[in-house]
Simulated assay, not measured.
Amino acid sequence: MDSFFITLLIIIFSMFMLGTGYTLRERNSGLALMWIGVLSMLSIITYRIYIATSAI
C-alpha cells in the first residue's frame, strides 16, 4: 500500500476515535478512546518522519 493511503487510513481512524471519545468524555471508555486517537495522530508524525529520513 502506498504511504499516502496508510496515512489517510490512520487519520480517518484517529478522527473517528477522537470524535467518539469526545462524545463519551464523561466515561472512562471515552477518555481511553481519545487517548487512542491522540496516540494514533502522533504515530502519523513518527511514520512520516521515518519515511522522510529513510529516503536519504
Rank of each mutant, 00 (worst) to 15 (best):
M1A: 06
M1L: 06
M1N: 02
D2G: 13
D2C: 12
D2V: 06
D2N: 15
S3M: 06
S3G: 01
F4R: 11
F4I: 13
F5W: 07
F5P: 00
F5A: 09
F5Q: 10
F5I: 11
T7E: 01
T7R: 02
T7W: 00
T7A: 06
L8A: 08
L8E: 03
L8C: 04
L8M: 07
L9M: 10
L9A: 13
I10E: 04
I11P: 00
I11V: 15
I11K: 07
I11Q: 08
I12W: 02
I12S: 02
I12Q: 01
S14H: 02
S14P: 05
M15K: 06
M15S: 12
F16K: 06
F16H: 07
M17S: 15
L18A: 13
L18F: 13
L18I: 15
L18W: 10
G19I: 08
G19S: 14
G19W: 09
G19R: 11
T20K: 14
T20M: 14
T20L: 11
T20S: 13
G21F: 02
Y22L: 14
Y22A: 13
Y22K: 11
Y22C: 10
Y22W: 13
T23I: 12
T23G: 04
T23R: 14
L24K: 11
R25C: 07
R25E: 11
E26F: 08
E26Q: 10
N28G: 12
N28H: 07
S29W: 04
G30A: 04
G30W: 03
G30P: 02
L31N: 09
A32L: 08
A32S: 05
L33G: 02
M34P: 06
M34F: 14
G37T: 06
G37W: 03
V38S: 03
V38D: 00
L39S: 13
L39V: 11
L39W: 09
S40Y: 07
M41H: 08
M41P: 01
M41G: 09
L42C: 14
L42N: 09
L42R: 04
L42K: 02
S43A: 15
S43C: 14
S43L: 13
I44M: 04
I44E: 00
I44R: 00
I44S: 00
I45D: 08
I45A: 14
I45Y: 14
T46Q: 10
Y47M: 12
R48N: 11
I49K: 05
Y50H: 10
Y50V: 03
Y50S: 12
I51F: 06
I51P: 02
I51T: 09
T53I: 03
T53C: 00
T53P: 01
T53K: 01
S54M: 10
S54N: 11
S54L: 09
S54H: 09
A55V: 01
A55S: 03
A55Y: 01
A55D: 00
I56Q: 11
